[in-house]
């Protein structure tokens, strides 16, 4: 059985008289330990889809289940990393990472150990006592990843988490995520509009169509693991990238004309 099942999910937004169909008949099956990446043109509803999986938004139709249980609202079993910086600015790195554990009533000692492990894992061992305002964007996202993972979620949902970072930092963060994922094997659903990022990270890339968003194609990426930035210059990488680009290009061109 799949870890996450999204079946015939639809979502429309209404503002006044204008009704926008954001998602239409979305079907997805994500396996345990899979690193799944959804790419799509901007405004295709991919963030909406992720929010529905997170339980932050409700689907109008269809069902979403994780481990066979339907998703009713947000919960600690689905950790999320946002594109915007969401560290709590009044808490240190350590306290931020402990946040979910504290809420669940885990003892201070155990909390500290778990947080410590994940802070080390994202390479911020010497910044445990630092406040977020002293961290760079890339470091903030590292902490956000550690904070989500410390909760031991069944799935990690990532909404363009590196979208606000510069190109070099983004590459470093992508490699970091790969390393973390190799170790933790948490199922990840990752959203991006960056094709390179999608191919580098993914087991499977799901290409979404323009609005109303549908899953248009599923492309398996069988580049050998563990991967790092060198994978991006291999011929297989280029082939897959080209394939996805063609699909997206078609989508964005028609979208641009109709808009």
């Amino acid at each position: 059985m799949s870890k996450l099942m999204v079946e015939q999910v639809g979502k429309t937004f209404a503002s006044g008289d204008i009704v926008v169909e954001a998602l239409s008949d979305i079907n997805l099956r994500i396996a345990e330990h899979e690193l799944a990446v959804i790419v799509g043109p901007s405004g295709c509803g991919k963030s909406t889809l992720l929010n529905i999986v997170a339980g932050l938004e409700q689907a109008d139709s269809g069902i979403v289940t994780m481990n066979g249980r339907s998703i009713e609202g947000p919960g600690a079993d689905r950790g999320m990393v946002f594109q915007s910086y969401t560290l709590f600015p009044w808490l240190t790195v350590q306290q931020n990472v402990e946040f979910g554990l504290r809420i669940r009533g885990i003892t201070a000692k155990e909390r500290q150990e778990i947080a410590r492990h994940y802070i080390d894992l994202v390479g911020l061992g010497s910044f445990a006592a630092t406040l977020p305002k002293a961290l760079s964007g890339g470091m903030k996202q590292r902490v956000a990843i550690a904070r989500a993972l410390a909760n031991k979620p069944e799935m990690l949902l990532m909404d363009e988490p590196f979208g606000a970072l510069d190109a070099q930092t983004r590459l470093v963060m992508q490699e970091l995520l790969l390393t973390v994922w190799e170790q933790e094997r948490t199922t990840i659903l990752f959203i991006t509009h960056d094709i390179d990022e999608a191919v580098l990270l993914a087991d499977n890339v799901y290409v979404m169509s323009r609005r109303p968003g549908r899953i248009r194609n599923q492309i398996q990426v069988s580049l050998p693991r563990p991967r790092d930035h060198r994978a991006t210059v291999s011929p297989e990488f280029s082939t897959i990238k080209k394939e996805i680009m063609e699909m997206l290009w078609e989508e964005s061109r028609t979208a641009a004309i109709e808009r």
Partner: peptide
């Protein structure tokens, strides 16, 4: 929203 996804 981040707090909600951390189980708050």
């Amino acid at each position: 929203r981040a707090a909600a996804t951390l189980g708050a």
